[in-house]
């Protein structure tokens, strides 16, 4: 199952669409899609990662797990999980 919004909309507004794992430390963006199947989407949503949520990258060393803040909480997530989350960054 693939769950994404149209990325064209974001591109027209001059935003770059990328995976959450590519967002550098300190960067921020808005979640535009979750591509990981039902269980993943359900877990990510319950922890605050839904389409439209603003995320800020706290720590991303380019390898290994990373840390983001979303909806006022900090989440640690694996790189594999981060690759399944699409964000529009400024």
């Amino acid at each position: 199952m693939k769950l994404t919004l149209q990325n064209g909309h974001a591109n027209r507004l001059g935003l770059a669409s990328q995976s959450l794992g590519d967002l550098p430390s300190g960067g921020s963006g808005v979640v535009s899609g979750l591509n990981g199947g039902k269980e993943f989407s359900s877990r990510a949503s319950a922890l605050g990662l839904t389409v439209g949520a603003e995320v800020t990258m706290v720590q991303n060393f380019g390898h290994g797990p990373l840390i983001v803040t979303v909806r006022g909480t900090r989440l640690a997530l694996g790189r594999g999980e981060a690759q399944k989350i699409q964000v529009d960054s400024r």
Binding site: A44, P65, I67, R74, L75, A76, G78, G80, E81
Partner: peptide, 11 residues
Amino acid sequence: EHTPFIMELPL
């Protein structure tokens, strides 16, 4: 099965 690694880091 790989359970998704998403974890809260409380304040």
